[in-house]
Nucleic acid binder design. Structure first.
Lengths: 245, 245
DNA sequence: CGCGCTTTTGAAAAGGCTCAAAATTGGTGG
DNA sequence: CCACCAATTTTGAGCCTTTTCAAAAGCGCG
């Protein structure tokens, strides 16, 4: 199964059974016990270029999209020229997973691709039914939902209570953790294709200042951010830094 | 059914049927069609004094509490001496309604009473069963959940993108709207028992500065805040103000 | 090689913070 | 009804983090 993104070829396993993402997704229960049922309700694998708006705020998603490759973000539109990034979506995430629980509710955010992306789409109602079939299928979903709430809540608290540098540190730590859970950390680092402009927006600060702040974190050896990769040499140290400063 | 809070007497309808809160709650569907089934799964009506911690972050709520009277807030503990108020809970709200959907998941926030409070508690599993009995019972729950997400998300965006005064304005507007929906607006205003210290915390600013900002809004005639009541003379004007400044 | 995008840097200004301390308010007990 | 205490609101002055607004420098790609 080969798809194209721009001019680049991308291949995805024909069956969900062999997909490396499976164990880190919201449907990991299904993936383990009956991967073929999963494949059966997958309707397509789509490649989408970067900077595309997948969903607009207020839309009602009909399909369930799981990210195979690439980053996206959830964005809230404030006005014509102001927006706020609410969260980053990484491989293994389900894009609009609040709509698994509340199908029919309009999205309270838009979704935008950051990089080129490969998505697997599932037939919404079939997928929901499958997920609710067994307790061990539903459980991971609840866990992930709780985790998402936790993450949003955490960001809110960080914006309210922490300094610019601490906010950066905490976002980096969260992303490291999420990548680790999905086996996406290699050599202590992971792909980090987010421009400083997006980063600034998501943390409620300006491009100029996030640049200075990151430089500072770099010079202190707390983070290594280069060539689209983020490495945190000493997690505990960065954590401690985020608590104090 | 009489209860005491401190030295003050409080009375609550014996049956949920006559409760003024019913139509604004998450169980409004049940309240309308079969209020007696609701009363049947109500286990008690409790009075709780102000400044009490009802739930600690990480606890797993066993009962479902609906607020009959008084304000509370959801709080995230950052460290020993730092915390962030995530949202305010007003009469008609369900305190831990995320646990209706995800029973067994630990709370990602603590809950604290702001004023003296009167709560109705419902037996968790009976309540959930009741709520899932009919589509028209579940629907309002989904709506409220979506609204809550919306509100958190909105606050996050406001902290990220707006000035201090705009943040205050928007919080006031949100609270006005929520009170209006529950028929708790009288003479254009509503009870507002929140100290500036709490307000400051919830909006990520300092006591001193929120005081100055509120004074300013007052002088511009945008809000009237006195004697524990908040009145917004001109909603549209305050809204417009929040967008620009 | 040149174009567009991202990162980096500078200088000045402002918004919001800190740390007090004073003034009000509301509730309590005598 | 008054006096008092604790909590809340208000005010002041100085400071610091973060913003603003450019403009320069780097980088990736065709």
């Amino acid at each position: 199964m080969i798809h194209t993104v721009g001019r680049r070829k991308v291949d995805v396993p024909i069956s969900c059974r062999d997909c490396a993402r499976g164990s880190g997704t919201v449907y990991r229960g299904i993936h383990r016990s009956s991967p073929d049922q999963l494949t059966a309700c997958r309707t397509q694998v789509r490649a989408i270029p970067s900077t595309r708006m997948l969903y607009r705020q207020g839309e009602i998603p009909q399909a369930i999209f799981s990210v195979h490759k690439g980053w996206l973000c959830r964005v809230r539109q404030i006005s014509d020229r102001k927006k706020q990034i609410l969260s980053f979506i990484i491989p293994g995430d389900t894009i609009t997973f609040s709509s698994i629980f509340m199908p029919g509710q309009p999205l309270s955010y838009g979704v935008q691709s950051i990089t080129d992306v490969v998505l697997c789409s599932f037939e919404r109602d079939k997928f929901r039914q499958l997920l609710h079939q067994e307790r061990q299928f539903t459980e991971p979903y609840h866990q992930d939902l709780a985790e998402y709430l936790e993450s949003i809540t955490c960001r809110l608290a960080d914006l309210g209570q922490r300094s610019a540098k601490a906010r950066i540190a905490r976002l980096f730590l969260e992303l490291h953790l999420r990548h680790a859970k999905r086996n996406l950390v290699a050599d202590g680092g992971f792909d980090f294709p987010v421009s400083q402009a997006l980063l600034a927006n998501s943390l409620g600060m300006t491009k100029a200042y996030i640049n200075r702040s990151i430089s500072d974190l770099r010079q202190q050896g707390l983070v290594i951010l280069e060539a689209g990769r983020l490495t945190i040499p000493d997690l505990a140290r960065l954590q401690a830094y985020a608590e104090r400063k």
